[in-house]
Design a protein around this nucleic acid. Sequence first.
DNA 1: CTCTTTTTGTGGTATTTGCAACGGACATTT
DNA 2: AAATGTCCGTTGCAAATACCACAAAAAGAG
Lengths: 228, 228
Amino acid sequence: MSVLHIYEKVKKHPLFEDILPNEFAEMYDCLSMYTAIYSKNEVILLAGELMKLVGFVLSGNIKITREDEYGKTTIVSEISALRLFGEAHAYAGVQQNTATIVASDDCEILWINYAKILTCAPDICPFPTKIEICTFHMQLLKNMLRVMATKNLLINQKNEILSKRSIREKILCFFNTYRGSEKKFVAPFNREEMADYLCVDRSALSKELVKMRNERIINFKLKEFEIL
Amino acid sequence: MSVLHIYEKVKKHPLFEDILPNEFAEMYDCLSMYTAIYSKNEVILLAGELMKLVGFVLSGNIKITREDEYGKTTIVSEISALRLFGEAHAYAGVQQNTATIVASDDCEILWINYAKILTCAPDICPFPTKIEICTFHMQLLKNMLRVMATKNLLINQKNEILSKRSIREKILCFFNTYRGSEKKFVAPFNREEMADYLCVDRSALSKELVKMRNERIINFKLKEFEIL
DNA sequence: CTCTTTTTGTGGTATTTGCAACGGACATTT
DNA sequence: AAATGTCCGTTGCAAATACCACAAAAAGAG
């Protein structure tokens, strides 16, 4: 895939906001980017290896899995095309990666050596000397901060939901963060996905929703919900 | 409080790693830092206001609270002295802050205009011109990335624990992430704190731990645990 | 349209968890 | 030594939730 083709894929991601095609081409070399193709079920990164690069899924899907000491593996999360992964591990540095990353389908990954953003101007001198940095590197740093901050808020939201001790509270918390101030909204999940997201049993979720409808707290029909 | 006194307080935080006293003093002006004192129960930031600054708790404790539409407030998290808050909101930008921050005790906050790190060299020119940036600003950026990445991993860990559907699974997941590869370890919580962390009932936690001991999965005495 | 597949709601039951109250172990204070 | 307070395990019970199986409804395929 040519650099321009890659650019077309990544340009909509917030990480590359306000980055021009020619700037991206420069970065491509400067940050030692390269693409790699993995076939279905191939291991992309083994648990225990250090995550030094940030990955961007150009096509296909990947999954993050964890294996306990008895060999039972669970899927921690799934990452679809045009999404970023590994940035937290790459920047946290010391932490050892305890998860294994596997290709769910045939897929193509763009690997980016993001650490280089921070060290690409190696002529570091003692204070108060200044160093030079490309304007678009600065832009990328800004974008990366925003991406991580946004992800942070998202996980925090989910955390708040999962902290609730009853299904009803989880539902209400999810609705509140999702709907904003709208009374009527369409859920982004079907029942099974919603149950997975809230970490509860699907049928228990259905029952609780009906119960809440009977108590005239909410109204709904399939994915369409309304707060009363 | 003098800038040097402040430096003594903040220097151990990862955000200020490898920042020298004189560098900090320069930053203090450059990033428009200032301190503010709040008395117990005083509102530090009201829900709805935009979070443009990053806060560092110099002394005392603060709490993040959220109020539902019927006026019931819940404590989302508590932040103790020498810890950072608001960085995710500050960098995510668009998001509106839905939480209210309140002083738990009398406390002193150092406010930092971190956005300025990204724009402090205003002579931005078109590609491929370079811009200048202080070396210690670069260090600070690096530190901020690491702080956010680390926080990200931490929340993710907690998320994984809370995703487990039974108390036993939560316990095991917590133990596994906490103990690393050590078979014996001392928990950082007493039972009540542990129950809060796992979002379960304390007595139910006690019961499950005893049950697991009877099944010879673990052994424990108060805070000392051992995986069998 | 009909047939098939997927999604959703329901009912019954077993299990888990929460709740409230209490007593013993231990440490601290008086 | 007695009194007090905190933490932990224990108990009985009530409530919530998971599990399983199935029917009704909706969505898709031909």
